Computed example of a mutant assay.
Amino acid sequence: MSWRQTRDAPFFVGYLNAVPRPLVVFLSIFTVCFVGGLGLAALALSSTQNDPGNGGFRWGDRFEKTGMLELRPYPVFRVPADGESPARSYMLAGQGKRGVFDQAESFADQTVTLRGVPVSRGDLTMIQVGKVEASAGDTSGDASGNTGELTLSDPVPLGRWKLTGEICDGKCYAGAMRPGRGLAHKACADLCLTGGIPPVFVSSGPVAGRNFFLLADSNGNLLGGDLDPLLALYIEVEGDIEQLDDLMIFKVDPATARVLK
């Protein structure tokens, strides 16, 4: 480049209150392209993420019902059928990353009034418990399954199944956090399950129209640490399924579990 070309080239001087027109044009084009590129990159990245779903706390739909508290093996609140309303079984969680084992053990197999806030996503509903009170009409029950005026049905066995899916903590997946699944949520899910939040198996295929299953071990007891390494991974596992009202319970056999990807 000659001296004359250098002398006539646009040059920015800080103490001058003006920017050469060619530089203004260049910076304008660069800025538009840079911001547009960032927007396209963000769109491309977000499109690869899993849909977090429409789950969340239903603050405007406060829960207050009378039913029975049971341990199966995690706390479950059962509400019998009432007219055209079918029987329901709700999984329960406490505030934060805690379960409600203390309340469930204190009121186990008793008729109680339970108040709380639903956390729901699709067919999965969990109640964040606020208060549990013994019902005025509670009795100790009898062998037929009647407790006061409550008539509760026995679980219905649905046979042995091999399912693929992911182990999640039920509260976060239902909508307490979004997304509430995947490796990004693994550490949070581990804390929730350690604190007593019920584990849920999210199946890739339905059983009797349901894709969410309360997890237990093969004997129907609390899960130990056998499935901890499989948390938040896509796995295949076998076990027996039973239906409790509208709630599915998956009694998994940890020895059959394997990671698929």
Rank of each mutant, 00 (worst) to 15 (best):
P10G: 04
C33V: 15
P199D: 03
E84A: 09
V259R: 04
T6D: 15
L158I: 05
L43E: 11
Y234D: 12
L260V: 08
R258I: 00
K186C: 02
G224A: 00
A44C: 05
K131E: 15
E149A: 13
D169L: 08
D102V: 10
E238L: 01
M91P: 05
L231H: 07
A134W: 14
R98N: 09
P198V: 01
E70K: 10
D51H: 08
A187F: 09
P80Y: 08
G39K: 08
A208M: 13
M68A: 13
R181M: 10
D142A: 11
K186W: 03
W3I: 15
V25I: 13
V100K: 05
G224K: 03
G96M: 01
L214K: 00
L16W: 11
L45T: 13
T48C: 11
G205M: 10
S89D: 03
N17V: 07
V76I: 11
D228R: 12
C172E: 01
K251A: 02
G116W: 03
G205K: 12
T139Y: 02
P75I: 03
V35N: 08
F34Q: 10
L150N: 11
G14H: 07
P52N: 02
P52V: 07
V202G: 00
A87S: 13
T151Y: 12
K97F: 12
